[in-house]
Design a protein around this nucleic acid. Structure first.
Lengths: 152, 152
DNA sequence: TGCGAATCCTTGCGGGCACAACTAATTTAC
DNA sequence: GTAAATTAGTTGTGCCCGCAAGGATTCGCA
């Protein structure tokens, strides 16, 4: 089979994308470090804050966070010992554990969120037009759809 | 200071972007695993193959790969023991080490590249129009420029 | 020339995560 | 109704990486 290499414009898009992701994640990670949170921690707090009763089953949380079961267990360990999240057993199905936001977790998220949003603006949206932002939404909706459609 | 939260279209762009990155990197990592390479390994081989004499100074390589010095040392350890890269001392400045592609490294890259390109098409470009790809190049050129302009 | 500062790389250490194996609980199938 | 299969979560192990410290070399400037 003949390989169809990337065209010049594809290569430009791909390289700029990959390098942006690498640099941006490092920068945003360090932006959040001042609050004693990693981006992974922050994601957990956001997801829980948006969930019904501010709690989610471990497996659902692992799924949306794109994390292995063991990875989530360890990430939660840190958040639990920091008092931001607590584990809650479920009486009706004793296999499952809920991760639940604590008042301290809610407060920590409220404290960090404005800074994080500013970080997203500074690192990502700065200099982009309204049309470009809409187009980004379209493009990555397509990409995400493809990825979930053919998972392997 | 009043927080300027993300608008609906900004939130849509950001979420789709983040989730796409998470899922895509995992998928492409597993695509490459069949060749015994991680994406990090592959990046090293690509950079070296494009460099003059197929070799780069460790610190330059670490810089372009967005990697700490120790991280690069360890990543090279694996590639060296696999025989894909070799360390070459520099007589004129004995502090520096070169990472140099070996014939086996060149062959491994040639072997894996077609599959990797197909992976990029399948995971990223699939379903995007020519205009969207060009716009992606523009957008992430802006983003990358911002990131390198204000490193912290 | 000589000594302190800077540069380059490696090593010790610890954190974060995946895989596999394990326990516990629930569901399915016969 | 019970055994097998499935599901949920944790733990052991190992890899990858960053930070801090250290050793070697070179540079800068008096």
């Amino acid at each position: 089979m003949v390989t169809k290499w990337l065209s010049a414009n594809e290569m430009r898009a791909w390289r700029n994308f990959i390098e942006s992701v690498n640099i941006m994640t490092a920068a945003m990670e360090s932006d959040l470090a001042g609050f004693g949170l990693t981006m992974g921690d922050y994601e957990v707090l956001v997801r829980l804050s948006e969930a019904e009763d501010e709690r989610m089953r471990m497996c659902d949380l692992a799924s949306v966070l794109q994390l292995s079961p063991s990875g989530l267990t360890r990430r939660l360990d840190g958040l639990v010992s920091a008092g931001l999240v607590e584990r809650v057993a479920n009486a009706s199905d004793r296999r499952v554990m809920f991760a639940a936001l604590t008042p301290r977790g809610r407060a920590k998220l409220a404290e960090a969120a404005p800074d994080h949003v500013a970080s997203v603006r500074k690192r990502f949206f700065k200099g982009l037009t309204r049309n470009q932002i809409d187009e980004l939404g379209n493009i990555f909706e397509t990409v995400r759809g493809n990825l979930t459609a053919c998972p392997q």
